[in-house]
């Protein structure tokens, strides 16, 4: 045991001394990534940006850059995947919208609506505004409602009572929508097809019947997951199994 102490000491020393030299600063990685991108070395840019993202950074700009780098690398599936992830964080970014639309124009599969047209009409605000906008609108309207209520209690003026009723209705509506959005985010998973073309089959094996074919960048709803496959829904009548590696979860 006595001989182990110096070895253990040396190991600890090596770990602590070597650590700063090996682990590159995320800021340095980001700068190197942007330089690589601007120099046309998209593969290096992807590696550096991905390393930052894998480190736990969730940022619209980073995801946007990853989408751009993949698009320049002709990897449409991953480009749209990163753009979709960026849109989750900040859907209204104009640069992101422009590039996302451009990438979508390169996809082959027709975009399908999984929600019914009736619900899109009845709950138009849910589809017209982003989840963040609905959340903030709910918070603001809720705050306004309570302010008006306080004003009514303090002054007794009927004006505040009249204002309170529509504000309460709006608060309930927006809060319910925001709550459903949270539920949807937590429960309903979406994915993007990564390879150029993938067969959606009736089962897990390669010999299972090919039901239909999807192409890179197509967005699907992920319904179930087995050890090797996802069950995906492309449209109401198009459901099948795809290998886990062929889909990127948004």
């Amino acid at each position: 045991m006595k001989h182990l102490h110096p070895i253990a000491f040396m190991c600890f020393l090596l770990i602590f001394i070597a650590q700063p030299a090996v682990a590159e600063d995320p800021a340095r990685q980001f700068i190197n990534g942007t330089e690589a991108y601007n120099a046309g070395d998209y593969q290096t840019a992807i590696e550096l940006f991905t390393r930052i993202a894998d480190g736990g950074v969730r940022n619209t700009k980073l995801y946007y850059n990853l989408g751009n780098a993949h698009l320049k690398q002709d990897d449409l599936g991953r480009a749209i995947l990163w753009y979709e992830r960026a849109r989750r964080l900040k859907p209204g970014d104009p640069d992101l919208t422009f590039n996302y639309e451009y990438a979508l124009s390169l996809t082959q599969d027709e975009k399908t609506e999984t929600t019914s047209p009736l619900s899109r009409i009845l709950f138009f605000w849910k589809y017209a505004y982003s989840k963040q906008s609905i959340q903030w609108a709910a918070l603001v309207v809720n705050a306004l409602f309570w302010i008006v209520l306080i004003a009514y209690v303090a002054s007794g003026k009927r004006l505040f009572k009249r204002l309170g009723a529509p504000l309460l209705f709006l608060t309930l509506l927006l809060t319910a929508t925001a709550a459903y959005n949270y539920y949807e985010t937590a429960r309903i998973r979406h994915g993007v097809i990564l390879p150029e073309q993938v067969s959606v089959r009736s089962g897990f094996s390669d010999s299972a019947t090919e039901l239909f074919v999807l192409h890179a960048g197509t967005r699907v709803v992920v319904q179930k997951q087995s050890d090797t496959h996802f069950r995906v829904k492309y449209a109401d009548d198009k459901i099948g199994w795809i290998p886990l590696t062929d889909i990127g979860l948004i």
Partner: peptide, 28 residues
């Protein structure tokens, strides 16, 4: 046709924290 350039602002490495469900409930 081409895409717009990448974003070079260094704040791209800071994590965005979207409003979580508990935080939203608290604010409500």
């Amino acid at each position: 046709r081409d895409i717009l350039p990448i974003k070079t602002e260094i704040d791209a490495i800071t994590t965005h924290h979207p409003l979580s469900a508990p935080a939203f409930s608290l604010w409500m």
